[in-house]
């Protein structure tokens, strides 16, 4: 077994043990962190590996959340169908966005994804009678059941989040060590060289956007199901910036970085909240410190200093 696999399985084991050891407050936090880390891992596939900076991932998160939420609210779908449906909705949206946005690159790609995401947010508000976008709606407790388990129960919720997190973490581990993952890195590092090694750059980028959007959508669907609320605020611009911050803090292009970054930023904000209202100021200061002292994020620093094998 490789060191990387030991690390990733070890993290899963620690998180599993934590389910039974943590006090209620941190237990709740960690469930939320794991789902948000899935969002960040999805973002990292596109940004950290394929090298495409999207400013519109909230639309994929929201597509997953609403794909799940609307089918449960209006058609009484069970979670076992609603969760995959939400993920599929995000995948379809990602495919559409990719086909259009990949005509651009660099800053133009950032702006186009931002615009699409903003359009998505406005669509949710426009259909307010259906989406209840402005104030959000609650997924009733009776609907929050999966395989006979009540997802509103804190322990079930934590374990469900851990299952999703583990699946995505191990899938990312597989992906980045695969041929496909290496080609994505090649495209990030030197697109023309990759093309002239015979790789279809456009098709790989398309695949990366769809995969990344699907994982973000799965996170959105799970977030709605586990925490019981659906709303347009999850489609707003700040929610697109969030995974970028998490990934930058934790280390872009590392498998474990998104989790580390999410946990770091989550607790930083939490700690800052106890001393000052200006928690965004603290988050900003932390990011400046990171760019000064760990430009490649926390795990990027670990990789550069101590663990060159870190995938």
């Amino acid at each position: 077994m490789s060191r990387a696999l030991v690390l990733h399985l070890g993290l899963i084991a620690v998180l599993f043990a934590a389910a039974f050891l943590l006090p209620a407050y941190h237990h709740g936090n960690l469930a939320r962190i794991m789902v948000l880390a899935v969002y960040a891992m999805g973002y990292n596939i596109l940004f950290g590996y394929a090298g495409l900076l999207s400013l519109g991932h909230a639309m994929f998160f929201a597509a997953g959340m609403y794909g799940m939420g609307l089918t449960v609210r209006y058609w009484d779908w069970p979670m076992i169908l609603a969760l995959p449906f939400g993920t599929l909705a995000a995948a379809a949206l990602a495919l559409l966005v990719a086909v259009l946005a990949l005509r651009t690159a660099g800053v133009a790609f950032m702006i186009v994804t931002l615009m699409f995401s903003q359009a998505g947010f406005l669509v949710i508000l426009y259909f307010n009678p259906i989406t209840r976008g402005d104030e959000g709606f609650v997924i009733p407790q009776a609907a929050r059941r999966l395989a006979g388990l009540d997802l509103s129960d804190p322990m079930n919720r934590y374990l469900a989040a851990l299952v999703l997190f583990s699946v995505v973490l191990l899938a990312c581990h597989r992906l980045v060590l695969s041929r496909l993952g290496r080609v994505l890195v090649a495209i990030r590092e030197n697109e023309e060289r990759a093309r002239l090694l015979g790789y279809d750059v456009w098709a790989h980028k398309l695949g990366a956007v769809v995969l990344s959007g699907s994982v973000a959508g799965a996170a959105g669907a799970a977030y709605g199901a586990l925490f019981g609320s659906v709303g347009a605020s999850f489609a707003e611009v700040p929610f697109s910036i969030l995974p970028l911050l998490y990934v930058l803090a934790g280390g872009a292009g590392t498998v474990i970085g998104p989790f580390v970054g999410t946990a770091f930023m989550f607790y930083l904000r939490d700690l800052a909240g106890t001393v000052t209202d200006a928690h965004m100021l603290v988050a900003g200061a932390a990011l400046i410190a990171l760019t000064l002292f760990a430009r490649r994020g926390l795990m990027g620093l670990v990789r550069a200093r101590w663990a060159g094998w870190l995938p």
Partner: peptide
């Protein structure tokens, strides 16, 4: 990329490698 897949390989005059790898 399709031509390369047919069996051409091209090496650049201005070195073009994956410097970070």
């Amino acid at each position: 990329h399709r031509r390369i897949r047919m069996g051409m390989a091209y090496t650049f005059q201005i070195t073009s490698i994956f410097a970070e790898l």
